[in-house]
C-alpha cells in the first residue's frame, strides 16, 4: 500500500466523520463535561469520607487531572466507531473488493481508523489546551517538554495496540453472527484493567502485580503517568519495548486469524 493511498484513505474517512458536525461537537463537549463531572463528585466524596489526603499516590487535585487526561487520551487511543469496520466488511460482503485490490487490508483499515480518529485528535488538543490554561497543575504532576514528547510516542503505540486488539476481535466475524457484544465485552475489561475507570495505583497491591504482566495498562494508565512525568526515561524505554512486543504479539495473532478466517468467508454477492 502506497503512502499516498494511505493518506487519501485517512483524509476521506476524516471528512466523512466530520459530516455530522453539530452532533459530533455537541456530543463531544457535553459528553466530556458530563463524564468528568461524574468522576469529580465521586472522588470528592471518596476523599472527604475517607479523610485521606492521598489515595494510590494521587492527591484530590491530581486525581481530577488524571481523569481529565485519561478521558482526553482515550479519545485518541480508541478513536470513534467506523461504519466501515472489519466486521461490517465481512457481514455485508464488502471484503470481496479488498481481496481483489492490490492493498494491504490491515494497513488500509488502520488508515481508516486514523481518519475516523482525526476529529478526536482536534478535540484532544483543543480540550487539552483549555485544561492546561485553566487549571493550576498540582505539585506532584511534572509536565515538561520531555514528558510531553514521551507521552506522544506512548499514546501513538497505545493507539496501535488498541487497534490491533480491536482488529483481532472483529475478525471473529468470520465465524460468529454478531460481534457487537464482544466489542462491548472488550471495552468493559479494558476500561477497568487499563486504568480508564480507576488509576492502577488505586488497585490492591497483588492485583497491580498481575496487571503489570497484561497489555491493558499500556492503553491508558501508562500514557497518563508518562505525561505526568511519573515515569523515568530508563523505565519508559523498557515499558515501551514491552508494549511493542505486545503489538507484535497481537499482529501475529491477527495474521493467523485472518488466514484461517479467509477460508471461512462466503462473499455475499459473488
Amino acid at each position: 500500500m502506497t503512502t499516498k493511498l494511505f493518506f487519501k484513505t485517512l483524509n476521506l474517512e476524516a471528512r466523512t466523520t466530520m459530516s455530522y458536525r453539530f452532533d459530533f461537537w455537541i456530543s463531544a463537549v457535553i459528553g466530556f463535561i458530563a463524564e468528568f463531572g461524574a468522576v469529580w463528585f465521586l472522588w470528592n466524596a471518596v476523599f472527604k469520607e475517607s479523610n485521606s489526603d492521598v489515595i494510590g499516590g494521587y492527591s484530590l487535585s491530581s486525581m481530577y487531572i488524571y481523569y481529565l487526561t485519561v478521558i482526553l487520551i482515550s479519545k485518541i487511543v480508541r478513536g470513534s466507531r467506523s461504519k466501515n469496520d472489519i466486521a461490517s466488511d465481512i457481514y455485508q460482503g464488502n471484503l470481496n473488493k479488498y481481496l481483489l485490490f492490490p492493498v494491504n487490508y490491515i494497513l488500509y483499515k488502520y488508515a481508516q481508523h486514523l481518519g475516523v480518529m482525526f476529529p478526536s485528535f482536534i478535540q484532544f488538543f483543543l480540550f487539552g489546551v483549555v485544561v492546561i490554561l485553566v487549571i493550576d497543575l498540582p505539585n506532584d504532576i511534572n509536565l515538561s517538554f520531555t514528558s510531553i514528547f514521551m507521552a506522544l510516542i506512548t499514546i501513538f503505540i497505545a493507539n496501535i495496540l488498541y487497534f490491533l486488539m480491536n482488529y483481532m476481535l472483529k475478525l471473529t466475524a468470520f465465524w460468529i453472527d454478531n460481534v457487537w457484544s464482544l466489542d462491548a465485552f472488550k471495552w468493559f475489561i479494558v476500561s477497568l484493567l487499563g486504568g480508564y475507570m480507576l488509576p492502577i495505583s488505586v488497585f490492591p497491591k497483588n492485583l497491580q502485580i498481575v496487571l503489570n504482566y497484561l497489555p491493558f495498562k499500556f492503553l491508558f494508565d501508562f500514557p497518563v503517568n508518562t505525561l505526568f512525568g511519573k515515569i523515568g526515561v530508563e523505565i519508559w524505554v523498557k515499558e515501551i519495548a514491552i508494549s511493542l512486543i505486545w503489538c507484535l504479539f497481537f499482529l501475529i495473532v491477527c495474521r493467523l486469524v485472518w488466514k484461517k478466517g479467509r477460508l471461512q468467508y462466503t462473499g455475499v454477492g459473488i
Binding site: 485521606s52 454478531n178 462491548a184 465485552f185 468493559f188
Partner: peptide, 30 residues
Amino acid sequence: FDFFFRILMDFAWYGTQIAFFSILYKHTNL
C-alpha cells in the same frame, strides 16, 4: 453465538461495576 456473547458481555459489565466499587471501598468505608 450472539445469545451466548450477550450473557458474557453483561456479566463483564456486572463484574467491572462490582470490582470498581470494591476497589473504592478499599479506600473508604462510606
